[in-house]
Write a protein that binds this DNA or RNA. Sequence first.
DNA 1: GCCTGTGAAGGATTTCACAGCC
DNA 2: GGCTGTGAAATCCTTCACAGGC
Lengths: 212, 212
Amino acid sequence: MTLEIPEVVINRLPVYARALAELAARGDTVVSSQALGELLDVTPAQIRKDLSYFGRFGKQGRGYNVASLLNKLREILGIDRQWRLCLVGVGRLGQAIAEYGGFGPQGFEIVAAFDASPDVVGRQVGGVTIHDIEELDTFLRHARVDIGIVAVPASAAQGVVDKLVEAGIRAILNYAPITAHVPRDVSIRHIDPVLAMQSMTFYIKRAEPGGK
Amino acid sequence: MTLEIPEVVINRLPVYARALAELAARGDTVVSSQALGELLDVTPAQIRKDLSYFGRFGKQGRGYNVASLLNKLREILGIDRQWRLCLVGVGRLGQAIAEYGGFGPQGFEIVAAFDASPDVVGRQVGGVTIHDIEELDTFLRHARVDIGIVAVPASAAQGVVDKLVEAGIRAILNYAPITAHVPRDVSIRHIDPVLAMQSMTFYIKRAEPGGK
DNA sequence: GCCTGTGAAGGATTTCACAGCC
DNA sequence: GGCTGTGAAATCCTTCACAGGC
């Protein structure tokens, strides 16, 4: 049935959902693909085509009902429910992630944290207890955890990813600066501000001594 | 000369560079597109094609010299020099960014921070002084700043982006959860862990009550 | 008249496959 | 024999353009 929806399309849906939530908060009840496209720097045709993979949600001559399209997207993406995360690595970065307030309101709850350092094991961070990383596997097999967050040093990251995958985790958010390997049935996303900046410097670099 | 290099290609180069740095650290001196591809889950043909946009860096029968290809990539990307950043927004997230140790070693130095709250203006964070955001424009026009980092609340983000652009900044790293608008000659990258997770949930959601 | 949904066209990107060279 | 560099082919993705409905 759901025959082959391009991943690029899936990646855009959360952006649409976010914009629709914004419109709903503003009190708008209807929006055209044109208007939504202007808001997001996307062509109207692309929005319509993307949505057409999942059904017909609009009304000719009128546009889309903001609230009902938002609900549809939330359902399609599965963001209409609560997701349980575990955080591995509670160094500076991991702590910041644990204390970040942006996940909860979107339905993503960190239910446990793990670290290898005895110095932090047993402490609390962002409302959860830090466990020894040795307990990771046991924990994952007894508690429901949907997504793993990796915030360990690069050298340890692939090992942690492997442990998460072996314990049955099918989605990983990786903050470590490595290209981690996962089986094809596991999703992984990389958060790497350095890579992001390193691609921008290409575009801003021209015009210096000896420049190309 | 540099006639139209696809942006996808540019985005992959930093990943190649990172892997090459890793290989160099391990003491490897030569690598084939095959071997590099396995390391990165990328096809060898893609690596060769990507590199061919910029020249001929390999040797038939042998592969690529790790050190010299790395140097070439660093030069192409412009990451062979120091880049100066300014951070706007020093709330929880902004503080974590300021204190993050991963930028410096890669040549990205935060030279100033800005915030609207009088409570933090004048304080230090991650080794730099926090200035009043009112001084942003003046500062940018007097000191060289290459990249702006936006870490303010969503509601203030587009305004900050506009200020950065007006002051001549041509590259922006945006941590705020909005789709910010910039002129076509300005680069922008978005860091958004929530969006990343919201696209993964699509793939892991199947098989629950009433599921599609 | 306005706007969706969608085949078809067009464009971009990836992969193939092989000539050429070490 | 192994591996690069690259046109050509294949695939993937975006945009066009219009029939159909409000």
